[in-house]
Simulated assay, not measured.
Amino acid sequence: MKTAFFCLLLTALSSAQAKDQLTLNDKGYLAMQGLNVTAFADIYPDGHQTGVTVIQHGSRVAANGDLRLEISPGQWSPVPVGGRQEVDKKANRITQTLSYPDPSKDRKGFNPIAYPDLKFTYKVSVTPLQGSQFKVTVDLDKPLPAEWIGKVGFNFELFPGELFGKAFLMDQRAGIFPRHPEGPMVEKAGEFIPAPLATGQRLTVAPDSDKQRLTIENRGPGTLELWDGRGNHNNGWYIVRSAVPAGATTNAIEWVITPNVIPGWRSEPVLQVSQVGYAPSQAKKLVIEQDALDTRADEVALYQLTDGGRRLVRKGRPAAWGKFLR
């Protein structure tokens, strides 16, 4: 007979997260209630899971903030190799060192990647500012070769599924995130991609939604470009990008990002079960993920669906299980 267990699990909460100020916590990422910012907590750019990542009101709205060699890279495009990460509590800053190429992928492995003849090392730093603001800077160890100016840039990807039909403002010029990639097309590095949706210095994403509003300001010498990465790759996201300027090293890229945070926001409980199923005699465990500020353990009821409707199987209060990293 299968047995059902209820477990209560709370999201991680630091003292900083409970305040209205984004702060580097003891788990190595920036946090406040309603907002988390991670920096290279995972290095898997193929799956849009790396770089500077924003989790706003419980949703991962932006990720893959990193230097790339193309405007709209694909799954098998060159990616950097991760080096040392420094979490500096005193300076309130996270710094990740990376470099091109990645020797383990350069023309090696099951899906070898053909890296160009370009070698450089750089650092991406993330620093909280006031409120929900944080700064992203990129420092290069040496200027880029002339033939790579305009090609290498800092890409920051916006998850498209949450933005279809939403508005954006670029320097007060309005636009709409399209459901499908559209023309006109432009040629970049021998590949045709949709022309940028907008260019400027200040981009506001979803200005009409308190839950999704996010502003990106360019503080460096270049410009912001908003691209639709789905035009040449069916798994692409919207891409906010600034190219690395000629001769730049220190602060080659400098952005200030401000996600809006709803005061007092709390996440709804999430029910988690095994994604791979259960063996016939295996106990089924239900994990209830709650907001870290929601410490209640309300009674839970488990029902079986029958041809006569719902039938109560059991009910009870969940036991404490532990905490997530985030």
Rank of each mutant, 00 (worst) to 15 (best):
L69H: 03
T3W: 02
W227M: 06
V244D: 00
D208M: 04
A206E: 10
K323H: 13
L224H: 06
R230V: 10
E254D: 12
W227V: 06
T137F: 00
L129Y: 04
F134P: 00
Y100L: 05
L35H: 08
Q96L: 02
Q172F: 04
K105T: 03
I176L: 11
L24F: 09
R266Q: 15
R68E: 11
L286W: 07
K123C: 07
R213V: 04
G165H: 05
N251G: 05
A39K: 01
V138S: 00
Q290P: 02
Q75A: 11
K142V: 02
G231K: 06
D20I: 02
D294N: 15
H57M: 06
S267I: 01
G161N: 14
T295M: 07
N92Y: 00
D88K: 07
P45S: 06
L22V: 13
A283C: 12
W321L: 15
T121E: 14
V79N: 00
L9N: 06
V205Y: 10
D298L: 09
L163I: 07
I193L: 14
P207G: 06
R230N: 12
Y100Q: 05
Q201L: 10
A174P: 03
S274M: 01
L144T: 02
M32N: 00
R311G: 00
M1K: 09
A4M: 12
N36Q: 13
G165P: 01
V152N: 09
